[in-house]
């Protein structure tokens, strides 16, 4: 056996199980979904028809689908912005020399270890039962209304809960990145007489740019795929105004028995999400600084 063949064999033995599993669990269902998107099937009967591109033309006339696409885009934009902003701010504060640093880090990360379904139900209870109490004590008008009854409020309820849930997680990533910056650089800058703002803008931010790439990627993909929190907190309501794409596709497949149409929607969803994240990672990778 020549060394190169041996090397390749070792390589193959390590990679094959993972590839096989990936193919079985991800690629196969994905391929099946592509096939489904050219068929007509309700998910139950034994009769599956081929209908060509009909599903693809149908989804562009499906106002509910387009509406939930719009909602999801808005949700992704706002939640990505807020969760990174708050996560990064928390990281900066908790990277300072505070006595309660470790306790606070734990507290902010804590929500992330609870399941999203449970979080949804807990917050549903807080919003419908505890908010009126807060309104009674404080007289704040914003807590008087039931947030889940109005589309505008329901959107912000979702944002609020998802930011509360995710900020701690992003904080951890940012803290790790901040701790990776060497003190020598910062000290040298201080000796050169830069102020705080300059230090942040010209040294810290460029050096944690790779963390931003990761965090934005995570926030965008998880935002697009939001499902369980959506289901548990608003169920897509009121009147479908907060129905995320994943929830919409699920309901189309299983409640409306539009299995094949839902597969088509999922394919389009994949293409859109895939291109957005590819572009994001590509653009941001180019600007990263190797330190």
């Amino acid at each position: 056996m020549t060394p190169t063949i041996k090397k390749r064999l070792v390589y193959a033995t390590f990679v094959t199980p993972a590839v096989l599993l990936f193919a079985l669990i991800i690629m196969l269902p994905f391929a099946r979904a592509i096939v489904f998107s050219f068929q007509d099937w309700d998910g139950i009967s034994s009769d599956i028809k081929w209908i060509g591109w009909e599903n693809y033309t149908a989804i562009f006339q499906d106002t509910a689908y387009l509406k939930s696409f719009g909602f999801t885009l808005k949700y992704v934009a706002v939640s990505t912005l807020l969760v990174n902003l708050i996560g990064f701010s928390l990281a900066i504060v908790l990277n300072m020399k505070l006595k309660t640093k470790n306790a606070l880090r734990t507290v902010f990360f804590m929500p992330h270890v609870i399941g999203t379904l449970i979080i949804g139900f807990i917050w549903q209870f807080i919003i419908s039962q505890a908010f009126p109490q807060i309104a009674e004590w404080t007289g704040l008008h914003i807590f008087e209304v039931n947030w889940l009854s109005y589309p505008g409020y329901a959107f912000w309820a979702l944002i609020m809960v998802s930011v509360w849930y995710n900020a701690g997680y992003f904080m951890v990533i940012y803290i790790a990145a901040l701790q990776g910056i060497s003190n020598e650089l910062l000290e040298a800058a201080e000796i050169d007489g830069v102020n705080r703002w300059q230090k942040m803008w010209h040294i810290v931010l460029p050096l944690v740019r790779n963390a931003f790439t990761i965090c934005l990627f995570l926030a965008i993909t998880s935002g697009f795929k939001v499902f369980d929190l959506n289901l548990a907190l608003t169920k897509g309501g009121p009147f479908g105004s907060t129905e995320s794409l994943a929830l919409h596709i699920y309901q189309d497949a299983f409640a409306n028995n539009n299995y094949t149409l839902a597969s088509t929607k999922a394919i389009l969803f994949f293409i859109v999400l895939g291109s957005i994240t590819l572009i994001q990672v590509f653009v941001m990778k180019r600007k990263e600084v190797e330190a």
Binding site: A64, G237, P238, F239, G240, Q251, A255, N256, N257
Partner: peptide, 12 residues
């Protein structure tokens, strides 16, 4: 069978 989950939206 699941059409009522759609009907509820205009009613809401």
């Amino acid at each position: 069978p699941g059409i009522q989950t759609q009907f509820v939206k205009p009613l809401q």
